[in-house]
Every structure is written in C-alpha cells, then in structure tokens.
C-alpha cells in the first residue's frame, strides 16, 4: 500500500503550518513576554475594597471591584508613562474587564482574583468595558482610565470605600475609633463589621446596617459594653453613611 504523493504533501503542509503557528506563539510568549492571565493563589478570600496604591516612580497598584453594574474606581487619572498592576474581583456575577486599545482582557469570576499589567505610553482616554453579559444593565457598565501629560500624580473617582475613609477622618470618628485594631476611647472598626457586639444592657447584636444607623443617629440609645457613653450625634447624610459602611464592610 503506498499513499499518493499529493496526499502526503497535504498532510505535511497541514502539520508544518501548525508547527509554524506554534513556534510563533512560543516566541510571543517567551520572546516578547506576552502571556495570558494566570492563577493567583488565594490566602483566604478575595479583597473586597477598591483602592489605588502608589509605588516607586510611575507604578501604581490598582484594585478594581466590579459589581452589577459599575466598576470601582470609575475614573482613574494617571500620568503618561505609568505602569499599572491591576487586580480585579467581582462582588456578584461574572463580569468582563477589557481596557480597549490594550492587551488587558480579563474575566472577573466570583471567588477569584484576576491580574494583569499594563503600561500607558500614549496619553488618551481608555475605556474599561465589561464584556461579559452580567444582567439587564450590562451595556451601562464601564469605567475609564485617563492618561495625561499634564498631571504628575494619580487621582481617582468613584471609590466609595476610600471616600468612606476620608469621611471617617473629616467627621472626627478616628479620634475615638481606630481602623487598625489599636485601642481607643471607642471600639476599633477593624474586623468589626458583621461580628457580634455585647452591649451594656447585656444583649448581643451583630454590627450591621441597622445597628450602625441606630448608633450614628441616636448614639445615646445603645452603648458597647466596657466603653463610655460619650459618642456625640453626627450630622451624616444617607450617602455619607453608605460610603462609610462600604469602607467598614471591607475592613
């Protein structure tokens, strides 16, 4: 039995074409250093708060949080030439995270952290698009990164949690309550959200929105055991309260 020469050639050309493609992919991966996202081993659970951290030079570490149907932060401004290490998670369903015009293309899957790095050589407005169907308002879900020659450092919008931190500072809460677990006049906020607290009347309640709201609006009605009843009434708006809550939840 002998196979026809053209049949052999067709087979060889098919194999050779694939071999060339594989070689090019290997070059792109190792030669040019372009890789796909990998697995970030999780210590316990993914972060819950969006944040921007400045490292040396124009390097920033950005933690994005996606939810139906917005990204936090919604606007990030960085100087031209910045490198961003992006970590992103979702609070609810699976979302997509594509920065149009770059190679950043991630799936944000519940329970896992997605990671990529991007370098912005050219100024411009880069749209972050949610490209995975995430419910009724999926088409509204985007954010942007503004890269500009005109600025020296980053600025950010739409970080409810970090705005919460600013509010705690501005309203004077931090005078009595720490956010790092250290002792103060009042109990620390660190790790307190969602955990039970014992009150002076001996009852135990969970620190949730209801308890928080009651304490903020009517501080004299409840007091945590072993602490003095000295908290003043604070004029906070609903919006401010929800931003503080967002921050405390992730603390």
């Amino acid at each position: 039995m002998s196979i026809n020469v053209f049949e052999k050639r067709a087979f060889l050309v098919a194999v050779a074409s694939v071999a060339v493609s594989l070689a090019l992919i290997a070059y792109a991966t190792w030669g040019m250093g372009i890789n796909v996202p990998t697995c970030i081993p999780l210590g316990s659970k993914p972060f819950e708060q969006a944040s921007v951290t400045k490292h040396e030079g124009k390097n920033y570490e950005v933690h994005y949080v996606a939810r139906m149907w917005a990204f936090e932060p919604s606007v990030l401004r960085v100087p031209t030439g910045s490198t961003l290490d992006i970590y992103a998670v979702t609070k609810d369903v699976t979302h997509g995270f594509l920065i149009a015009g770059t190679n950043v293309n991630l799936m944000l899957v519940p329970g896992a952290v997605a990671n990529s790095r991007v370098h912005f050589e050219k100024p411009g407005i880069y749209t972050i698009v949610c490209h995975e169907y995430c419910g009724r308002n999926h088409q509204n879900m985007n954010a942007r990164i503004e890269v500009s020659d005109q600025i020296a450092d980053y600025s950010v919008e739409g970080l409810p949690a970090s705005e919460g931190m600013k509010l705690l500072d501005a309203k004077g809460c931090l005078a009595c309550h720490s956010v790092d677990g250290s002792a103060g006049v009042g109990p620390t906020f660190k790790g307190a959200w969602g955990t039970p607290v014992t009150l002076t009347d001996g009852s135990t309640r969970t620190l949730d929105s209801a308890l928080f709201l009651q304490k903020v609006l009517h501080p004299d009605t409840i007091t945590v055991k072993d602490y003095p009843p000295v908290m003043p009434v604070l004029p906070l708006t609903d919006d401010e309260i929800s931003k503080i809550e967002a921050y405390l939840e992730g603390l």
Binding site: P37, C39, I40, M107, L108, V109, A112
Partner: peptide
C-alpha cells in the same frame, strides 16, 4: 478560559 483567573498558565 485563557482570560479566566484561577487556572495556571
């Protein structure tokens, strides 16, 4: 799933 987290390269 090349763009997924949780799976190694």
């Amino acid at each position: 799933q090349f763009a997924d987290p949780g799976i190694s390269t």
